[in-house]
């Protein structure tokens, strides 16, 4: 994970025109063309557009909202602990509607209407996979995914 931390920090602090705006308010929009020199993503799938949200639950519970594709293309969310255990996953076939909101927390007594992903470490990462049927779709899908947002919330 330390490799990933370094790469995320680079995405946050280094602007590269060919990669576009990669870090927007805590969400990392990776560009497939800019993954070849990224140590933490050595074997990416060229068909996938990866979006990442690193988090630290010391700042509060994390509320995530993301657009869900309405067609049959593969889309998924996986939430990973700091030790890379996946503790939550969902795909677009399990979701009705064009947006999905969920909460990442360590508090098992928390009461909320939202789907909850229970983490077992404060730090971790949420990974979105969105499939391109053709590489020419990138611009449209990149715009589509950029309505993803995340917010730390103390009380619900």
């Amino acid at each position: 994970m330390s490799k990933l931390d370094k790469d995320l920090e680079r995405a946050r602090t280094e602007y590269r025109p060919e990669c576009g705006e990669r870090w927007v308010e805590g969400v990392v929009y990776s560009n497939p063309a800019c993954l070849s020199d990224v140590a933490s993503s050595r074997k990416p799938n060229p068909d996938f557009i990866y979006t990442l949200i690193p988090y630290d639950l010391k700042e509060g519970n994390l509320r995530v909202s993301a657009p869900v594709p309405s067609d049959d293309r593969y889309w998924s969310i996986h939430a990973h602990n700091r030790n890379t255990d996946a503790f939550y996953k969902i795909t677009n076939t399990e979701i009705d509607g064009d947006r999905f909101e969920f909460l990442v927390t360590r508090d098992r007594n928390l009461k909320t209407e939202l789907p909850v992903a229970y983490a077992s470490s404060n730090k971790g990462i949420i990974l979105f996979r969105l499939t391109m049927k053709n590489f020419s779709e990138y611009a449209a899908l990149d715009e589509f995914r950029r309505s993803t947002n995340r917010k730390y919330v103390e009380n619900l």
Binding site: R42, S76, H78, H80, T84
Partner: peptide, 25 residues
């Protein structure tokens, strides 16, 4: 990436990718 996976496989994954697969996905 399932909980309890052996440390050798975790280490291998860390070098060849990062966040691995889980069933049934």
């Amino acid at each position: 990436s399932m909980e309890g996976q052996n440390p050798w496989l975790r280490n291998y994954i860390a070098f060849t990718g990062l966040v691995g697969s889980i069933r049934p996905e």
